[in-house]
Simulated scan of single mutants.
Amino acid sequence: MLKKFLRRCHNAVSRDIAQQMLAARFSLFLSPLLQNWAYIPFTNWAPGPEFLCHIANEICIRQRRTIVEFGSGVSTILMARLAKINALDVRIYSIDQNQDWQDRVAAICAADGTLGPVHFLCRPARLEDGKHDDALVDMVIVDGKAEAAAENRASALDFVAPHLGPSFAIFLHDTDRAEEQAILDGWKKKIACTHTIAADRYAVLLNDAAMFDTTPQNLC
């Protein structure tokens, strides 16, 4: 009995150490976006470094250029920095329900000198309220609500679906939770996607015939 207990403890500690080492590795990959910039407030609400690294990989490798995200925050700031240091022609439509929080995120981007590609939208009824061009959306990041009345994130797909291009990536965070897993399953029935990537805390739906795996190293 004691041996089994000790084995379980050992396995749990080993998993924790492995996760910490993996997080440190991803943070190293992201270091150009973290060092010598304005400070970013990281909390337990923020997505993990593997999620952020995967987003950066997707933008750079598949050349995603029109991005819609639900939930302004760390991802907004890092994508704006990536656009600046890699000289990327991207448009980031960042949607949030909290004007005060969005203003704080915008202030960090302003301090970084990276506000150019970011369009902040607070509680828009439609994407057209802030998107005034015909460019098709090729990347969606869902880590917040789609509209002020939404009780969950399920409506994000309906919100952006009319604007999706033929090739796209949709990131959904917190798929370790039952509600988000149900949302993901529902989305799979609504849209055509060629691939699904599942990580510990998030998933990605892809529609890309020329599939090139952008999953961060050691995450697969």
Rank of each mutant, 00 (worst) to 15 (best):
S31H: 03
F42S: 03
L184Q: 15
I61K: 11
L78P: 02
L164E: 02
A149Q: 14
A182D: 09
A23L: 01
H173S: 15
M139W: 05
R81D: 10
A107P: 10
R123H: 07
K4I: 03
A46R: 05
L136K: 12
S14Q: 02
R177D: 02
D143Q: 13
G130W: 00
F5R: 10
L157H: 04
V74M: 05
R65D: 07
G144T: 07
N98Y: 12
D96E: 12
L205A: 05
T43P: 08
Q102R: 01
A150L: 07
E128V: 07
K4A: 08
P166N: 14
R62S: 06
G186F: 14
P49S: 11
A154V: 10
D89A: 06
G113E: 09
G144V: 15
A149R: 11
G73Y: 13
C220I: 08
L206D: 04
L88N: 14
I40K: 03
Q99H: 14
E151V: 11
L136I: 02
D213E: 04
I85N: 12
D158P: 08
I55E: 14
D138H: 00
C193M: 13
V204N: 01
Q217F: 02
N152S: 13
M21N: 03
V204R: 00
G48N: 09
T215I: 05
D174L: 11
K131M: 15
D143Y: 12
R126S: 08
Y39T: 11
V118K: 10
N218L: 05
A56I: 09
Q20G: 04
R7C: 05
K131Q: 14
A178V: 09
C122Q: 12
D96M: 01
A169W: 01
I55D: 10
N44A: 09
T76G: 07
P49C: 13
M211N: 04
R104E: 08
V118C: 04
S27F: 00
F5H: 03
V68K: 04
S94N: 13
G130L: 07
Q20E: 08
V142L: 15
V140M: 12
R123F: 08
D176E: 05
T194W: 00
A169K: 05
V90P: 14
N11K: 05
